[in-house]
Design a protein around this nucleic acid. Structure first.
Lengths: 351, 351
DNA sequence: CTGAAAGCGCTTACAG
DNA sequence: CTGAAAGCGCTTACAG
C-alpha cells in the first residue's frame, strides 16, 4: 500500500494475499486461513503445502482485514502513570505519542538492543508486519546507513532526532547543542576556572561533536589555550565517565572543573571524585548535559543543560505526519533552544 | 466486537457505522466519509448535519476498515535504542512488548498524568478509539475503581501488576515484597544495627504495606522493639524521602540505618545526610528498593532490592493474551522473587 | 457539491 | 478434513 503514497511513485510488488497462497498451494483460502490460525483439522500434508507457499511468497496476513472480518483486534493497551521525572527515551515517547494522538495516528514501538547482528531483519519485520506509514528515528538509530536504505527501498518516509549525517528529503530536529555547551563553558570560566576538563561522548551521536566544539569556542574566546590532556573520550555511560575522570584527576595538574557530555558521565565523575575525597564544588566543579533524573538527586545536585526533548519529538513527529498526509513539507533542520540549569555541583574554584 | 469474545457473552449495542450516520443525516456514506476526512467541497449545512449525527451516535470510524480500503495505515513506528539501564516503566514496557510480539499482538500506550480529572474520559476514548482487546494495568492504575468498572462495562479483560485490591476474574502478578523487605532488614540487623528507621511509600501501592510488614517482621524476630518515631510516611518521591529523612535525623536518638521504600527516597535520604555532613555508611546506613539506575550511580552506591520487572510484565501480558485467545486462564496471583543487591551505602554501625 | 458501485483481504457461519 | 459464499466498514475511482 505504501507504493501509492505521495510523493513516492515507485512501483513495488504488491504483497501476497491469501488468494495467492491458496493458488500456489492448490487449496481454498479457507484452508490457508486454518493454517495461519493454527486451527486443528488440517491434514499434515496440506499444512506443509500451505506453509511452503506462505514461505515462498513471504506472505503476511493483512492485519486490517483480519480485524475487519473477525472478532479480535490483536491489540493490547498499556495504561500507566507517566512519571514526572523521566529519562530521554521516555520523553521522546511522550512527545511522539502526543503528536500521533493529535494527528489521528497510532504509535508502535521497536526497542532495539545494540549492537544487534539481526538489526536489519528486525527492522524489516517490524515495518512489514506492523504496516507502518512512517518511522521516527532518534539518535543514533537515525544514522544507520542500512536502516535508511531499507526504509528507502520500502518507500517508508522517516524523520530523525539529532542526526549526524545527511540524507535525501531530510526531516530533522536538533537543538543548539553547540551554543549551550559554549554558554556552559563560559559560565564556568566566569566562576574563575582556567583549567577545564572535558569528557566527550559517543562519536556516533551528533551531540558529541557539537558539545565539544562549543567548549573549544568558549576557551578560544576567553583566550584560554586548549590542552589536549584535558580532553578525554567517553561513551555516554556512567563507567566511561568514571574512567575519563580518573585519567583527568590523575594529571599532575588536574582540572578545577570537568564538563561531561552527559549527566551519566558527570555522575561517574562525581563518583570518582568522592572516592578520592575531593570536595565538590570547592576542589572540583562538575557539569553535565541532559538534566536527567539523576542530576537533581545526586549530591551535590548537578549543573547541567536541559533540552526540550518532548517538544522536539512532538515537532518532528508532526512534520512526519504532515508529510504522510501529502503536504509538501520541505526538508528542514529546525533547531530548539537548550537552557543551562545551574545547581551546586559547580562554583568558584578554591584551589 | 468485544461482545463476541469468550468468556463474555454480554450484549452491547453494536457501534454505529458510516451507514448509520448517513441515514441519520440523510446523506450518502460518501458524504459522511468526506466530512470525517475533512475534505473540501462539502456544503457547510451538510457538514453540520453530518457532524450532528456523528455526535448523536458517538460514531468513531472503524480503523481496520479505513486501512483495508484505503492507502494509509495511520501508524507511525518509533525505533529506538533500548537503554541498558532503565527505570520501572521502561522495564514494564519491554516486558509487555515482548509478550505481545510473541503472541501476535500490538501494544498501544496511554501515559496518564495523575491526578487527572478527565481520567475516565481519557481511558474510555483510548479503549474505544484504539479498539483494544485487553489492557495491562501496572500499579497504581490497576487499583482505580472507576477504571475497573469502565473496563468491565466495555467487557475488556485486564491484567494487573502488583495490585492492592481484589477484583473478579483476577489476573495479577506480584513479587515477594514482604519477604524481600524482611531479608533486607535482617541483613542490616546482622550488621549490628538496632535503631532502624523506615520510610514508607505511597499508600496507594500494595508494595507500601508489604515492605513495611517485612520490616516489622524482621524486627520482631530479632526482638527489637518497633518504635513509631522511627517510621515516617513518604510518597515514593525524592522530595518526600528527603523530608522523611530530615524528621528521622532530627530525632534526639536518630537511627543508625534507614530503609527507604524505594530508591528515589533513599537518594533523598542520602542527600539530606550529605547536607548534614554525615558519613555513609559509617554514621548512617541507607537502603532502598527497586534497583533503579540511580542506585548504582549515586555515591556511595545503594544497597537495594531488585525486582524482575521485565519478567513480571511479560508474564502478566502473556496470561492476558492467553485469556483473550479463549484459554481458560484461572484467576492467578503468581509471585516472583526479589533479590537483595548489597552495595556500599550500608555497613556496620560505627557509632 | 453529492452519490452509486466496486473492492480492500480476511473470518464467519454453514455445508458437505 | 475441506470449500463456496457472504460480509466486515470503510475509501477509491468514476460519474454527474
Amino acid at each position: 500500500m505504501n507504493d501509492h503514497r505521495p510523493p513516492h511513485d515507485g512501483k513495488l510488488d504488491k504483497p501476497a494475499t491469501i488468494f495467492d497462497v491458496a493458488k500456489a498451494a492448490g487449496v481454498s483460502i479457507k484452508t490457508v486461513s486454518r493454517v495461519i490460525n493454527l486451527e486443528a483439522n488440517v491434514r499434515q500434508t496440506t499444512r506443509d503445502k500451505v506453509n511452503a507457499a506462505i514461505e515462498a511468497l513471504s506472505y503476511l496476513p493483512n492485519a486490517a482485514a483480519r480485524v475487519l472480518s473477525g472478532k479480535r483486534f490483536y491489540v493490547i493497551g498499556l495504561i500507566y502513570e507517566n512519571p514526572s521525572e523521566f529519562s530521554y527515551m521516555q520523553k521522546v515517547l511522550n512527545g511522539a505519542l502526543k503528536a500521533c494522538e493529535a494527528g489521528g495516528y497510532t504509535l508502535l514501538l521497536l526497542p532495539l538492543t545494540l549492537p544487534n547482528p539481526d538489526l536489519i531483519a528486525d527492522v524489516r519485520r517490524f515495518v512489514s508486519q506492523s504496516r507502518l506509514d512512517g518511522v521516527v528515528l532518534p539518535a543514533p538509530i537515525g544514522d544507520f546507513k542500512d536502516i535508511q536504505q531499507l526504509l528507502a527501498e520500502l518507500l517508508i518516509p522517516f524523520a530523525r532526532i539529532a542526526p549526524k549525517t545527511e540524507v535525501h528529503e531530510d526531516l530533522n530536529i536538533r537543538c543548539n547543542d553547540e551554543q549551550a555547551s559554549f554558554e556552559l563553558t563560559q559560565y564556568l570560566i566566569g566562576q574563575g576556572h582556567r583549567q577545564l576538563g572535558f569528557i566527550k561522548g559517543d562519536p556516533i551521536h551528533s551531540a558529541t561533536d557539537h558539545r565539544f566544539k562549543g567548549y573549544l569556542r568558549a576557551l578560544a574566546q576567553a583566550e584560554i589555550p586548549a590542552h589536549s590532556e584535558y580532553v578525554e573520550d567517553g561513551m555516554f555511560s556512567f563507567e566511561s565517565g568514571k574512567a575519563a575522570a580518573r585519567a583527568l584527576l590523575d594529571l599532575k595538574d588536574p582540572p578545577t572543573a570537568i564538563i561531561a557530555s552527559n549527566d551519566d558521565m558527570a555522575a561517574g565523575t562525581i563518583f570518582e571524585a568522592r572516592e578520592r575525597g575531593l570536595a565538590i564544588p570547592d576542589t572540583l566543579s562538575v557539569a553535565g548535559f541532559d538534566d536527567t533524573p539523576i542530576a537533581s538527586r545526586i549530591w551535590p545536585p548537578l549543573t547541567t543543560v536541559r533540552q526540550p526533548i518532548v517538544e522536539m519529538a512532538e515537532a518532528v513527529t508532526t512534520l512526519l505526519i504532515r508529510r504522510l498526509r501529502g503536504e509538501k513539507v520541505a526538508s528542514t533542520e529546525e533547531a530548539f533552544t537548550c537552557h543551562i540549569v545551574t545547581r551546586n555541583s559547580t562554583g568558584p574554584t578554591r584551589r
